[in-house]
């Protein structure tokens, strides 16, 4: 699935949270998110920041369709994902969103290529095409030659780059990154952020969920959260981003 205009909602947003609340617990209720509205626009290079407990992980789960809101709607390309059955929502998630996690979450018994290919499974893509596309994504993150290595044979930075390749191989509308440099040293972190920068495109949004203000400062749009609510949505202008 590619980022074609017909999947865009009327508002032009790739993904739209509308009055979303998420309450955990049965007897003791925890309001992780309260009535949040958010539009993720094509070309967004944004960060969601906030202290622990501010609701940013809940936000990530909902943005990634890994969780369902207690109330409100989540629209992707005009489709309300909260109304879909698991199979359809899973398909939508696989098509529209690419994930990058702090802990990489590569499947240990698969090679780098196998890990990337996993994102292309069950989509009616021929084995050969799957392989070619996965290989292309690995080359894009500079790991083409390490395709047959298993995660245990790679450094943290390399593993995160494999995870990045896996996130983009489906050509998603949105790349969701959860503290992508949290487990990396400075050099590898910079390297990974460079790759993120190179993935920017007018059709795609890249969303970081982080408490790392350095990363947040690199983005064009910064959403600040506190106590389950969005308390700030600011555009940041800096020279590096315009250069890209």
């Amino acid at each position: 699935m590619t980022t074609s205009p017909d999947v865009l909602a009327e508002s032009g947003a790739l993904l739209e949270l509308d009055g979303v609340s998420r309450v955990y617990g049965v007897e003791v209720l925890v309001h992780a998110l309260r009535d949040v509205d958010l539009k993720v626009m094509p070309g967004d290079f944004m960060s969601i920041v906030g202290p622990s407990g501010s609701g940013k992980s809940t936000m990530l789960g909902l943005l990634g369709l890994l969780d369902l809101p207690t109330s409100g709607s989540i629209r992707i390309g005009g489709v309300d994902a909260t109304q879909l059955e698991d199979t359809e929502r899973s398909r939508l998630r696989g098509d529209a969103i690419g994930f990058v996690f702090q802990q990489f979450h590569l499947i240990p018994h698969l090679t780098a290529l196998g890990n990337v290919e996993t994102a292309l499974l069950y989509r009616g893509i021929k084995a050969r095409d799957r392989r070619d596309r996965a290989m292309g994504a690995l080359e894009q993150v500079g790991l083409g030659e390490r395709y047959d290595h298993r995660p245990i044979q790679m450094s943290g930075g390399e593993q995160q780059r494999v995870a990045l390749a896996r996130a983009i191989v489906t050509e998603p509308l949105i790349v969701l990154a959860d503290e992508p440099t949290g487990a990396l040293d400075t050099e590898n972190a910079a390297n990974v952020m460079d790759i993120f920068g190179s993935l920017r495109s007018p059709d795609r949004a890249i969303v970081f969920v982080t408490h790392d203000l350095e990363i947040a400062d690199l983005t064009d749009r910064k959403i600040s959260m506190r106590d389950g609510q969005i308390v700030g949505d600011e555009q940041q202008v800096h020279e590096t981003s315009t250069a890209r």
Partner: peptide, 16 residues
Amino acid sequence: SGEIGIRRALGHSRAT
């Protein structure tokens, strides 16, 4: 469970 979680994130349904 980690593998299952990531597979779900990658779009594999519960049935799969």
